[in-house]
């Protein structure tokens, strides 16, 4: 393998991995603070990809304003999601929430996925594929040509991760979210309102998932039925990185992204998704502690 090729694969892995990290971190923050295992998380990502595609390709918006709109729109979706589906579970024991949230969000995932594929095929294009092809020119770094869209994705991911980090470490609501994730009993005793926290986390988490979907299809196209697979990836990355742990999610996401890209290169692209499922099993079996510690007691 030549060096430029290696570097190209490396950048590809970083892009995919950064996006996995972003999506996985929002997933695991939701899991850690609310005990909701959001099976629909990957579907929200796909919905974000679809919305971005619609805005950019069919309505002619620029990529960045489109992402802004998607993020804002899905803040609203997240609020509705919390109010309609998860509010009824408030006050149940955390183990119970975990299990019933799986069934509820699994149902939601299937419903959303089916509707998306159905209506897209009917009203937008017969073969639904979500992809953005923005005209951002590529540039050379030494011998290596860096694709403009990929660099843009990496840049935006870095900014979003930075913003999330500041949100969690510098703002009151971010600290409350970390507190709830670390020790729910302690958070209750000192008078934090867990509903307020879970509302904020779900809203922001779902917007982050949708945004990462929009960014994803700047690099790799998606179809409407890949949501559940993406959820599995979110689960893998958050479990490997430690639930609710941002640096951990970044490291695990990038590791998985690189593993997929290099597997795809050597064994053929059809084997990359398999790679991530195998990693999921490895993580489930080898690091159960990481999964459990992240979610309180």
């Amino acid at each position: 393998m030549t060096l430029p090729l290696f570097l190209e694969l490396l950048v590809g892995g970083l892009v995919v991995g950064g996006l996995y990290a972003l999506m996985a971190f929002s997933f695991s923050l939701i899991l850690a603070t609310t005990h909701v295992l959001n099976v629909a998380h990957g579907v929200f990502m796909v919905l974000g990809a679809a919305a971005s595609t619609l805005l950019v390709r069919h309505l002619g918006l620029g990529v960045v304003p489109a992402f802004g709109l998607v993020a804002a729109g899905f803040l609203l979706v997240g609020m509705i999601f919390e109010a309609v589906l998860l509010k009824p579970m408030a006050g149940r024991a955390s183990g119970e929430v975990l299990v019933s949230s799986i069934l509820v969000t699994f149902g939601l995932a299937l419903a959303l996925e089916a509707m998306l594929g159905f209506y897209w095929a009917r009203h937008v294009e017969p073969q639904p594929i979500f992809a953005l092809h923005p005209r951002i020119s590529s540039f050379a770094l030494g011998d290596v040509v860096v694709s403009g869209p990929r660099a843009t994705v990496l840049g935006i991911v870095a900014v979003v991760v930075g913003v999330l980090h500041l949100l969690l470490t510098r703002t009151r609501i971010g600290k409350e979210a970390r507190a709830v994730a670390q020790n729910l009993a302690g958070a209750l005793v000192i008078g934090l309102n867990p509903r307020r926290v879970s509302r904020a986390v779900l809203t922001i988490g779902i917007a982050a998932a949708a945004l990462s979907g929009g960014l994803f299809v700047m690099a790799i196209p998606l179809n409407p039925f890949e949501g559940l697979r993406l959820t599995m990836i979110a689960f893998t990355v958050s479990a490997a990185g430690g639930v609710g742990n941002l640096p951990g999610a970044l490291a695990a996401g990038i590791a998985l992204g690189l593993a997929e890209v290099f597997t795809g290169f050597w064994a053929g692209p059809i084997w990359s998704p398999m790679m991530s499922l195998l990693v999921l099993f490895a993580v489930l079996l080898l690091r159960p502690a990481a999964i459990l510690t992240g979610q309180g007691r």
């Binding site: 020790n183 958070a187 209750l188």
Partner: peptide
Amino acid sequence: THERVALGLGLVPEGRELFPGMTVEENLEL
């Protein structure tokens, strides 16, 4: 509970229930 705290009730619970991964000052701020 959060309304009771706003009324002026405070509890130092059995087992302390701190936020172990956060700094002393963050614990206080919360």
